[in-house]
Design a protein around this nucleic acid. Structure first.
Lengths: 237, 237
DNA sequence: AAGCTAGGTGTACGCCGTACACTTGTCAAG
DNA sequence: CTTGACAAGTGTACGGCGTACACCTAGCTT
């Protein structure tokens, strides 16, 4: 009887259930209240039970990020690159707004998960199929940076102490799953030898984005832009 | 004798010495190794001694940010707004590059310190004296966001549960020290009532910055831009 | 000489992530 | 029907963290 009651009440744990509970807890109580003990309690389970489904707290956070990235709408078809990118990014933003803790967590992750990589690949693909060169797309992605995408920030940045051979193997492997990401990674590493390792000249990227914005500001100022010029798109799909 | 030796070896602690030691420790051992015990040990002192000079760890981090912001070069005079802003921001970036932990810490702070506010005010002032309207400057600052300045992100964003009266008093007080910041804050709060509280339409700001960048990318793509087009400014003042 | 005070000390508490050894529930093979 | 292997959940415990709080002490003021 007791066993039956237990059997009824106890939905078995699973990685998925743990992640969803963690997201819900972070949404409700704030990310600072998310700890293994509290999460376990929320699931009616002892803290250490969680470790049968996630390796540690970092992997838990990675999984939570994947849940949020999974909420981003898939790309729309049949639109020009610009509005397709725009819609996708605004969808990503909506996902982040729904979970205010998410951007901070995303920024704190050290390596992108496959889910994140797939999202990246798809956004890069929009530029590529929209007629952008690999080179330009590469720098565009840097210019977007974490601000617009919600994350990314140094994707190929620092993978130090990996011999070129293994790196090449990993790259080839990646090319199957994330062709657009790989394309850019290859271009970047072939790019120039002045930069050590996985060559992205971070300073160059920074200045490019800065100058793009400054030029844009100048244009706005010269044409007497005011914020009431344009109807503020309220819902903006 | 012992007392003398002690007196000789023991440079008395001070808030400043604590902050410098903390910055040095974060530089050397990484921000994740910075904790009160370790920092105290580095200063040859017992952990609790630190609390006579900083209220808690959060204030310690605030102080460390102030040290870093203090490293940013003062504004140059006699240059057009664009290159003045550019130089200032690149100087801020250099400071952040010198202390890789700093951007993460800055982003984690909840309220800007006076030192940070002063930096903000001075950058805003560059746009204003460069002929930018309050309105445009406001949105420009949002567009820059944390990516370019290294921080800022929601300066007037969320000060909930403060009655308008106190808010007005605080604003007037601020206007003395940070006139440009106040100017924008006032404009923003008068702006529209559709937005509750301290009205910055975050969605509008986000889309403005996004569209500025997308338009810039489009222009680059149409004119066949490649990254080798321009000499990469290596040292860049 | 008396006593106040700023600065440094020592102990202790509660919260955190998680290692490790254990029990238990489930199901396949004998 | 028994057995035993394996996956899932438990319990205890440890070390690291921030910091409250009571204490000591050197040096200055009166």
């Amino acid at each position: 009887m007791v066993q039956q009651a237990d059997a009824v009440r106890r939905v078995p744990l699973s990685r998925d259930r743990v992640l969803r509970a963690a997201v819900a807890l972070a949404d409700d109580a704030g990310i600072e209240s998310l700890n293994m003990r509290r999460l376990a309690q929320e699931l009616g389970v002892v803290p250490m039970a969680l470790y049968k489904h996630v390796a540690n707290k970092d992997q838990l956070l990675d999984g939570m990020v994947d849940v949020i990235v999974g909420e981003i709408h898939p790309p729309v078809h049949g639109a020009d690159w610009k509005s397709a990118v725009r819609q996708r990014i605004l969808s990503a933003r909506r996902a982040l707004l729904r979970h205010p803790w998410a951007s901070r967590v995303i920024e704190s992750r050290v390596t992108p998960t496959p889910v994140v990589l797939e999202y990246m690949d798809s956004v890069i693909g929009m530029f590529r199929t929209g007629g952008f060169s690999v080179d330009l797309t590469h720098h565009v992605m840097h210019a977007m940076g974490s601000r617009i995408l919600g994350f990314t920030q140094e994707l190929f940045g620092n993978t130090p102490s990996v011999d070129p051979e293994t790196q090449a193997v990993m790259l080839r492997e990646m090319a199957g799953k994330y062709p657009y990401v790989a394309e850019i990674a290859i271009a970047a590493s072939h790019d120039e030898e002045s930069v050590v390792g996985s060559g992205c000249d971070d300073q160059f990227e920074f200045e490019l984005a800065l100058d793009l914005l400054l030029d844009g500001f100048e244009r706005l100022q010269q044409q007497g832009w005011t914020s009431t010029d344009q109807a503020r798109r309220g819902d903006s799909t």
